[in-house]
């Protein structure tokens, strides 16, 4: 698999990262290098090996369903750029 410049632009757009044209070529080559590594690994015979979804072979710890967090809004909002009526304000978005 090898990525085109358009693929890189699309990935950058999805990640909301601004990438210049010259940077894009560099990223393309680096990403293609990673795909090269993946291709090498895919040559390994994994028949009969169960896929892992996590690097550690452990199970998720569960927490009892109780409310443990107090209201700390004023502390959190003290470091927010802009707040009003208890809301965090952000540049207008509407979908």
């Amino acid at each position: 698999m090898s990525l085109s410049l358009q693929d890189v632009e699309r990935i950058a757009q999805l990640a909301r990262i601004r990438v210049t044209e010259s940077e894009a070529a560099g990223y393309r080559d680096q990403l293609n290098g990673i795909f090269g590594l993946i291709a090498e690994m895919q040559a390994v015979d994994t028949a009969g090996v169960e896929p892992m979804s996590h690097a550690q072979d452990l199970a998720q710890r569960l927490r009892p369903d109780t409310v443990t967090e107090p209201d700390r809004r004023s502390a959190f909002q003290a470091v927010a750029p802009q707040v009003e009526d208890g809301l965090y304000l952000v540049p207008k978005v509407i979908e």
Partner: peptide, 28 residues
């Protein structure tokens, strides 16, 4: 439930804005 799926903040309906949003919910 009483609390959120990944944090210990309350999910009670109708609370004042952001009074039930802890550091996990805010993604600090």
């Amino acid at each position: 439930t009483q609390s959120k799926i990944f944090s210990g903040a309350s999910i009670a309906f109708g609370a004042a804005p952001n009074t039930q949003a802890c550091q996990v919910d805010l993604a600090l």
